[in-house]
Design a protein around this nucleic acid. Structure first.
Lengths: 135, 135
DNA sequence: TAATATGTAATAAAAATTATTACAATACAA
DNA sequence: TTGTATTGTAATAATTTTTATTACATATTA
């Protein structure tokens, strides 16, 4: 996992706290202290996942696509989740080894199980609840 | 998360399947298809965590430190787990922003909760059970 | 029509991961 | 007691991934 989830959470929290006024990528980059282009890339992704809405042109910016009480942390995680939460080996194991031959498929199954319990847990908190912590 | 967990699992599974005969780092590197020095680094770490035992010198190698039924996947994960399973932002958020100022501590709490449910789940499977899948 | 945003491509810089080389220390076996 | 195979680890190089920057087309408002 890289820094995408913290960035996505930061973006969503800012938008939640903005109380439906448009925020610019420049403003959010200032809060996160990161390059505006990277933010816009993540914003593109959140947009694609239907979590936010953008408005082009002057005075444009971003707002949440729906009420924060209807967005769960799980939904945000889904938008940025890596292929394998438990990590992926870069090299193909030796197919002549009885363990090496099969291990990737077993690890993949394990990964799917873990992702499920994570999503269950992350699904119990809404963005609105998370945002309340900042009051 | 990088490739350390898959490597650690591969090592532990090989040792479990070896039925208490010593395996060399060279042999394991061949199954995993990775550089022997990297394997030895991970072996050092597993050693430090008390999961395996090494024997120096000619005909040396590695074996499990205890029966595979007494080792859980959670125990293996603990040996290689990253600081933050949900990822860490590289940059310090803007302390002048009310969200930026606090978000890291809230994300850290969230991370701890998620790690706990992961460990609970990984704790329900032993290495012996995982190893049985390969029969 | 000027100004201010989003959206995105191309590229550069930095950081992290993985691989390699080298060699000391140890223990077995002939 | 000497040669050999193995662990253990440091130093360095190569590769890959992540993050930052530059540039600019497109859209919208005033």
């Amino acid at each position: 996992m890289n820094g995408r989830f913290p960035i996505a959470m930061h973006i969503m929290t800012l938008l939640c706290a903005s109380n439906e006024s448009l925020l610019s990528s420049e403003y959010m980059a200032g809060s996160i202290n990161i390059n505006p282009v990277l933010i816009r890339k993540e914003l593109s992704n959140l947009l694609k996942h239907g979590l936010i809405i953008s408005q082009l042109g002057k005075n444009g910016g971003y707002i949440l696509a729906k009420p924060a009480k209807d967005i769960t942390i799980a939904g945000i995680y889904q938008a940025v989740k890596p292929d394998a939460i438990l990590g992926q080996a870069k090299n193909q194991p030796n197919p002549a080894c009885p363990i090496g031959k099969e291990i990737n498929s077993h690890l993949k199954n394990l990964d799917a199980e873990i992702e499920q319990v994570m999503l269950n847990k992350l699904g119990t908190t809404t963005l609105a609840e998370f945002c309340k912590k900042f009051e």
